[in-house]
Nucleic acid binder design. Sequence first.
DNA 1: AACAAACATGCATAATTATACCATAGTTGT
DNA 2: ACAACTATGGTATAATTATGCATGTTTGTT
Lengths: 149, 149
Amino acid sequence: MKIKRHAKILEILDQHAIETQEELAEKLKEAGFDITQATISRDIKEMKLVKMMDASGRYRYSKYRDEAVPVNERMMNVFREAVTHIDYAGNIVVVKTLSGMAHAAAVTVDLTEWSEIVGCLAGDDTIFILLKTEQTAMELVSNLKKYIK
Amino acid sequence: MKIKRHAKILEILDQHAIETQEELAEKLKEAGFDITQATISRDIKEMKLVKMMDASGRYRYSKYRDEAVPVNERMMNVFREAVTHIDYAGNIVVVKTLSGMAHAAAVTVDLTEWSEIVGCLAGDDTIFILLKTEQTAMELVSNLKKYIK
DNA sequence: AACAAACATGCATAATTATACCATAGTTGT
DNA sequence: ACAACTATGGTATAATTATGCATGTTTGTT
C-alpha cells in the first residue's frame, strides 16, 4: 500500500497547493487512503519531499528537484558488479570497490559530466571523488547508491 | 545585516550538516550573528531553503536546487519594459503586459528552452503559458518575477 | 503451517518550527 | 526636525512535525 500511497502523494502535490501534512492527510483520505499525519511525516522523509515558500509567499510541499548525475549503461554495470560501499566526508566521496576494480569504476565516474565533480582518483579498491561542496557530495552519494548491490 | 546573515547561512549549510534551526542559530552565534530561532525560521522561508532527508537518513537543511528558466538579454529587457504582472492558476501562467506588447514578450518566452513549457499564446496584453504541472507553473512564476518592474 | 524477522503504522507526545504581537531602528517626505 | 512608514527581529506561544513505543501485517524460512 505504501507504494501506491507514495504515487498518490506525488499526484496530489502536483495538483494541489499543500501547506501542511494534515492537509495532505485529508486529501489522501478522500482518495481512500486511511492514514494519519505520522505516516505522512515518514513518507515525506522517505520520499525526500520538501516544504518551501512558493510564489505566493505561503508554504508548500513539493518534490525536490534533483540534479541527477548522468549515468550510462556502462557505469550502471560496473557499479553493480564492483562497488561495495559508498560514503562521504566533507566534500569528498569515497567509493569502495572489489580489489583491483577501482580504476574501472573511476573511469566511468570521470566520464559523467556532472559539473560539481572536480576530480577523481583511484587506488586499487578505493576511489576518491572530489566535489565542490559537502552538499553536492551528499547528493552524489545519494545518487550513486541507487546503482550498487 | 540580513543580507550578510543570509550569505553566512549559505556558507554554513555548505560546510556543516545542519539538522535543526537551533543548530543553525548556534553556528550563526559562533560567527558573531546574535539572533534567535525565530529569525532563522523567517530566513529559511525567505531564502527558500528546505529540510530534507540526506544520504545518511537524517534531516538536513539545504538549498533548493532550482531548475532555472534560461533567460537571455532580450527577454530580460522585454520583461522589464513591458510586463506588469505575473501569476498562475493551475498549470497555466498568466503574464500581463502593457497594451500591444504581449506578442513581443511571448516570443522571448517561446525562445527559452525550458522543457516544462508546453506552449505559449499571446493576445494584446496577456500571455498564457501552459506548463506541465502546477508545480512547474509555480516555479516559472517565481523565476520570471525576478525580471519585472 | 509455524515461526522469526522485517516492515508498516497508529497513538501519544516530544521536538521543532512558524507566527502574532510588540518594540525599536532606520527612511522618507514635508 | 518631525510624523509617518517600513523593515527587522525578539518574546512567547500556537501550530506543525517527528518519533518512541506498541501493535498488527507481510515476507521469508524451515
